[in-house]
Each structure stands twice: as C-alpha cells, then as structure tokens.
Design a protein around this nucleic acid. Structure first.
Length: 232
DNA sequence: AACACCCGCAACCGCCGATTC
DNA sequence: GGAATCGGCGGTTGCGGGTGT
C-alpha cells in the first residue's frame, strides 16, 4: 500500500508513520496540522495526522475496556448532553470522543437487541426508542449494573503498544540521563524498538538551530527540513 | 475445516465554526 | 466585512478478528 508520489496516503497507519508523527508532534506541538503533515514527509493530510494523534498516539490515552465508573459517566452525560462526544470525552480523562462514540454505538446496539427481545417476549404494544431508553435508564443503577461486566486488569487487557513504549522510553531516558529527545535521537537509544528500521528524515535544525522552532517561518523551515517539498 | 456472521475499532468524510489575511 | 484556510466535531464506513454453525 504505497502511495504514489504526490498522492495523499489513506488507510491504516503503519508503525513507522506513527513514530514519525510522534516525533514531529514532539517537535512542533499539537497544532498546525497541515504544516506538520507537510514537513514530516508523511503523505497524509493534516486532518488525518491530527486524528491519528488525538485518537491513538496521544500520551496518556487509556486503552482497554471502559471501567464501570466510566460507563456510568458516559450514560449520565449522554442523557444530559446527547451526542456531544467531544464534550463527554472531556469529562473522561484519557478517553477520546471517537472511543466513546464507538462504545456508545456498541452499547446502543446491545440495548436495542435486548429491547427487541424484551418487547417480543412481553409483546409490548409500544417499543421505546433508543433515546427514551437511554434517558430512562440513565438514572437506573439497577438496570445499568446488570449490563456492566466485570472488568479485567487493564494491564492484562491491553496489548503491546510500540508507541506507548516509545513515549515511556523517551520519558524514562530523559529522567535518568538528562538527555533530551534530540540527544536520544542522536545516540539512537530507541533502536531496540521495532523502529530500528525507521529512517527519520534528517533535519539540520536539530543540530544547530538555537531559536524555538515555532518562531520559524513555515517556508523557511520547509526549505531546511524537506527541500523538495519547499519547491513543489 | 470452512464459511458466514457479528462486533469492535480505526479511519475517512462532510459540515461548521474559528481564525487569519 | 468577506474570502480562504484550518481545526474540531459528529456521522459513517470498512476492515480484521472472534465466534457460531
């Protein structure tokens, strides 16, 4: 799945792309996604980069099942705010709007199926809609607790994530050695990661630029970091 | 063992509001 | 003030893995 020259890549992100994105976000911060997408050399749109970062790569994201507390909170907040996923997500640290949205869809599907069974069994004349079901059950702990399955230990549930490890290693290294990310890169401390195959685009900026990067003019920087791009 | 179906999740799309020029 | 651009949000889709038949 290699994008042709000049064509924007779509579809699943590769590990290399992830690490490259993490790298550049670390450099420039979580903003100016279009610019970041260009200078990173990723053939992705700014939107795509942002989405990937927000939903998957952002440090501090929780993975694995929602806890019963979180499920409860989602129910309550959805009853209150409706499909304002990003708003709801802000109340659940480490969870993304996408995650909550997906969770809700699954939840509602289950709910609908149960409802179907229930109404079929009781031959109820009026089957309540999704929203009414949610609203009426949102304050019904009994109804909810019956649905909440016991959660497993997150450590066990969560799979290995190279990006998490990437972050952990950077953080640990910075703490232990006092070396920054740049030095880390220089000495190749992360080569034990599967990103050993990664060839980060060389940037002279890392070597000598004393000014904060965000002060640089976009074009000026593009010129320095990806000369080809700057002239395209 | 092979196939069909279902579920969960990542990613894309389109729209809209905010910001910049 | 209006146009262009960017970023954020919600809806939707499609893929991969798991499970049932």
């Amino acid at each position: 799945m290699v994008a042709e020259k000049g064509e924007t890549r779509k579809g699943p992100w590769t590990e290399q792309e992830d690490l490259q994105l993490v790298w550049f976000v670390r450099l420039f911060g979580e903003r100016r996604w279009d610019f970041l997408a260009k200078v990173s050399g990723l053939n992705r749109t700014g939107k795509s980069c942002r989405l990937r970062w927000v939903n998957y790569l952002h440090p501090g994201l929780k993975r694995g099942r929602m806890t019963p507390q979180e499920e409860q909170l989602v129910l309550e907040l959805h009853a209150k705010w409706g499909n304002r996923w990003s708003r709801i997500a802000r109340k659940l640290p480490g969870r993304t709007d996408n995650e909550i949205k997906n969770y809700w869809r699954t939840h509602m599907r289950k709910k609908a199926q149960e409802q179907k069974k229930g109404s079929a069994a009781s031959a109820s004349p009026s089957s309540p809609s999704f929203s009414s079901t949610v609203t009426t059950t949102s304050n019904n702990n009994e109804a909810q607790s019956s649905e909440i399955e016991p959660i497993e230990n997150e450590e066990v549930v969560n799979g290995y994530n190279p990006v998490d490890q990437f972050w952990n290693e950077i953080t640990a290294s910075e703490a232990a050695t006092g070396l920054g990310f740049d030095e880390y890169k220089e000495i190749g401390c992360y080569t034990n990661l599967s990103c050993s195959s990664i060839t980060m685009p060389y940037s002279p900026v890392w070597d000598y630029n004393p000014e904060p990067l965000w002060r640089m003019d976009d074009e000026e920087f593009s010129e320095m970091i990806v000369p080809d791009l700057a002239h395209s």
